[in-house]
């Protein structure tokens, strides 16, 4: 470990960053599980419909049993992966690469779901945006950059797969370009957030050290 040569400042930052990363991983994992539950719930409504007094959602025509089964198993896989993260965190297994692994698995599962659904024409294609958004919770610039690139690659994969195997579901080129552009813009914005957080912490530490004995009521209360 390079622990002995680290300056206090470098170590303080690393400790703070790892704490933020842990909290972010927990939060991202919760959002991931709730998200899967939500998307799967919509899929269940699609399949079976609902009739509760004023709320009447008819079952969608043409949702085949095998398709729905596949979606159920994808949701199950996602939840099992998220449970693996829960078990790992509870056992203090928290390597640096876990954030890349979970982002990759998310994207792979979403891509498979889209390829078996209606490809780039599916309304499910919006799922790429929350998956990209989750990356910023770890406040790691490299994770945000990686996820942005991976999301764009996943979308292109889905679009090209539709073009090759099911041309009726393919989207026109301008639509694909717009989507990729939107993903890239969100990625750039998130990258900025991840970078500025460090600058903000530095600015705060700098100001806090210049005010030696600020009255606590003033420091705590005024946000």
């Amino acid at each position: 470990m390079s622990d002995t040569v680290d300056s206090e400042e470098v170590r303080a930052w690393r400790v703070a960053q790892r704490l933020t990363e842990l909290r972010g991983e927990e939060r991202a994992n919760l959002i991931r599980i709730v998200g899967i539950a939500g998307f799967y719930g919509v899929q269940l409504l699609n399949r079976y419909g609902v009739a509760l007094g004023p709320v009447q959602i008819p079952a969608m025509e043409g949702v085949e049993g095998s398709f729905h089964l596949l979606m159920s198993l994808l949701a199950l896989t996602g939840v099992l992966v998220a449970s693996g993260v829960l078990i790992a965190l509870r056992n203090r297994f928290f390597p640096w690469w876990i954030k890349y692994a979970t982002s990759t698995v998310d994207l792979v599962l979403a891509s498979i779901a889209l390829v078996v659904a209606d490809g780039p024409s599916s309304p499910l294609v919006v799922i790429f945006f929350p998956l990209l958004g989750l990356s910023v919770l770890r406040f790691s610039q490299s994770l945000v950059r990686y996820t942005t690139c991976a999301t764009i690659v996943a979308y292109l994969f889905v679009a090209l797969a539709a073009l090759r195997d099911r041309p009726t579901l393919a989207v026109p080129l301008y639509q694909a370009i717009l989507f990729v552009l939107a993903l890239a813009i969100v990625g750039v914005a998130l990258d900025h957030v991840a970078r500025e957080v460090r600058r903000l912490a530095g600015a705060y530490a700098d100001r806090a050290s210049r005010v030696p004995a600020a009255p606590s009521a003033d420091a705590e209360g005024g946000t």
Partner: peptide, 12 residues
């Protein structure tokens, strides 16, 4: 998170 995950598993 664990509770929601378990619920999804049971429903699946």
């Amino acid at each position: 998170a664990a509770l929601v995950a378990a619920a999804v598993m049971v429903i699946v």
